[in-house]
């Protein structure tokens, strides 16, 4: 499903990858583990075409990610980045913005659907009228999770999406993604709910190897 092939990547004058290769099969649940600066997020950026490797190829669903295919690849991947401050809108306006993008117009972004997911992730419904900047870290992560699910894609790149959640919610969110057999999920996380789950393969960025 996702293949990194002999990647060299220099970013900000720092060599992050040299001759790096990795393959993730369809339906696999993978966690990237390692200190910051090892290039965990860079792998997401490579796959989404935000940065280009100096050497090597990135493949998605059998084809290379290049200037023509990347726009389509982005429409097939659901990417959740904890760092993104999505602006000073209301939560409901953010849902509307996502729904208005042409590629997403056939999706179900109805209020019922949103409320159903908000209930599931234990978010109060009146959050919809709050400004995103007023939400707590945990609330913001859950809003991002809900958006990722509503996009109805089956490949997920999740960058620290459970760090600010309480214990029960961490488990609920992680299990939600891990439990779906058809979903390919790559998560960057230090949370035990991901690392200790028997269905999850852990890739250690420090050793550049799968953890046994």
């Amino acid at each position: 499903m996702i293949t990194f092939e002999n990647i060299d990547l220099i970013f900000d004058d720092k060599k992050i990858f040299s001759d790096f290769s990795l393959e993730i099969a369809q339906g696999e649940k993978v966690v990237f583990l390692g200190k910051s600066g090892l290039g965990k997020s860079s792998l997401f950026a490579l796959l989404l075409g935000f940065v280009r490797p100096q050497r090597g190829r990135v493949l998605f669903d059998g084809g290379p990610v290049d200037e023509h295919t990347v726009w389509n690849v982005r429409q097939k991947i659901s990417f959740v980045d904890q760092d993104v401050s999505i602006g000073d809108h209301k939560v409901s306006e953010w849902f509307a913005f996502v729904a208005e993008i042409k590629a997403n117009q056939s999706l179900d972004f109805s209020l019922d659907k949103i409320k159903e997911l908000m209930d599931f992730f234990e978010l109060s419904r009146d959050l919809l009228n709050k400004d995103i900047s007023d939400l707590s870290g945990g609330e913001r992560q859950r809003v991002a999770i809900i958006v990722s699910v509503m996009l109805k894609r089956d490949v997920f790149l999740l960058d620290e999406i459970t760090s600010a959640l309480d214990k029960n919610l961490k488990k609920k969110a992680a299990d939600f993604y891990i439990g779906r057999k058809d979903w390919t999920v790559v998560s960057i996380s230090h949370d035990a709910v991901w690392l200790d789950n028997p269905h999850v393969k852990v890739f250690d960025l420090e050793k550049k190897a799968w953890k046994q």
Binding site: A45, L48, F50, W71, R74, Q75, I77, F79, D81, D83, V84, S85, I86, G87, V98, I101, K102, A103, N104, V147, L151
Partner: peptide, 16 residues
């Protein structure tokens, strides 16, 4: 930059 990339990842065209 990060937010812009995130919007691209949502499937937006360059124009959008």
């Amino acid at each position: 930059a990060k937010k812009y990339q995130f919007v691209l990842s949502l499937g937006a065209s360059h124009q959008e």
